[in-house]
């Protein structure tokens, strides 16, 4: 079996679990915190035939918005952490001034120890696209605040830009540009 596929499968388990667990836990924690009446009933309109129902539309808007925001944060934060580390590392190797700045901030070792692969960045970015898509479609349907949909769109665009930048860095290693040194 392809090693790339096996690695991709292994890397996908964590973000997939975070999405499901994050949404599940955040929905019920928010319902408990707001002390809302809810019921879990079977429904023919949903894929899994079980649906959580709330009494008021305003409660649905509140729970959906903030549970989507928490799930988005659970995927976006690790994605940007990985991207930042990779981009800082490349910047440090290109520009000595970056090394000075990183040393002053005492994060040089953190950056240089990075072994993040392009595959890991790709997997996390794909999951960020998925959760952004869910937030945006939920906003359009009126079940989530619009600002959360906009925020998720912006985050996914930034992550995509970071991923493309990473690809550029990796391809530049194979096809170096003039006057550039790559490690």
């Amino acid at each position: 079996m392809s090693k790339l596929l096996i690695r991709a499968l292994k890397l996908s388990i964590l973000p997939a679990s975070l999405m499901v667990v994050g949404k599940f836990v955040s929905v019920f924690i928010l319902i408990a915190a707001a002390q809302l009446q809810f019921s879990i009933e079977s429904s023919r309109q949903t894929l899994f035939s079980i649906q959580v129902y709330l009494e008021e539309y305003s409660d649905v808007l509140f729970i959906n918005s903030y549970s989507n925001l928490i799930t988005l944060a659970l995927i976006a934060i690790p994605t940007f952490y990985i991207l930042a580390r990779k981009l800082f590392m490349q910047s440090a190797r290109e520009n000595p001034r970056t090394i000075v700045k990183l040393t002053r901030l005492n994060i040089l070792k953190w950056v240089l120890n990075d072994k993040t692969s392009v595959l890991k960045i790709t997997v996390w970015t794909m999951f960020l696209w998925i959760i952004s898509g869910v937030c945006i479609s939920s906003s359009i349907s009126g079940f989530t605040h619009m600002w959360i949909g906009i925020l998720s769109g912006v985050l996914s665009i930034l992550a995509t830009w970071g991923m493309i930048k990473t690809y550029e860095m990796e391809t530049d290693k194979i096809y170096p540009r003039d006057n550039q040194v790559y490690y």
Binding site: M19, V27, F127, I130
Partner: peptide, 30 residues
């Protein structure tokens, strides 16, 4: 190994699809 590759691809797609559907299904409704 080469015969298992399509199964791995389907597994990968399921890992992308199932969390999406689960997140959408967990969203409460009135």
């Amino acid at each position: 190994g080469s015969m298992l590759d399509p199964i791995a691809i389907i597994g990968m797609l399921l890992l992308l699809l199932l969390p999406t559907l689960t997140v959408m299904n967990l969203s409460p409704r009135t």
